[in-house]
Amino acid sequence: MLQRIASGDPAAVRECIEQYGALIWSIARRLSRTPSDAEDATQEIFLDIWRSASRFDATQGSAKVFIAMIARRRLIDRLRKTSAEPAMDPLETLDAAEWTDSSASSETSMEAEQATRALAELRPEQRQVLELGLLHGLSQSEIATRLQMPLGTVKSFMRRGLIKVRERMNIQADGVSRV
């Protein structure tokens, strides 16, 4: 699909919006301060996708991960520019994130399943740090304050958590996932 988008195929563009619109919207909602910000961000993300589609390399991962990477880059850029704390769910609702069932449908990407397994292996507090940072857009300092945890511990949990996911995804230095 992304190759077709790169060549300007209008059908592929609509397919992309239909297939990934909900995903991008959900990520944008989580990492934006307001619904209006989320709308702006979503438009920018799709524009980034149209521009970057030609760089997609299927040997480096799924289209879903490629699109989620583009979305995260744009949203982090926007968060830094607004330099304000993102809108987020109350702490007690954080466990409400709907995690992928590793036995779920074929629509679930392999990478998401691997990440879910990696997260399940983390200690609860380590997993919480990762969720606050990656899913709710909190900075490490904000996480330290909220969880009343030393900043160094937050950094360490974040680092180890991402490394664990990376290892689970079995990413080698050439960037290719091997299963």
């Binding site: 959900s26 989620a68 979305a71 995260r72 990407s109 879910t116 990656l134 996911v165 990413i171």
Partner: peptide
């Protein structure tokens, strides 16, 4: 690699 890992975690929470 870290961007891909972060994207995968994001996907895992986007069901």
């Amino acid at each position: 690699d870290f961007e891909r890992a972060a994207a995968a975690v994001t996907l895992a929470a986007s069901a």
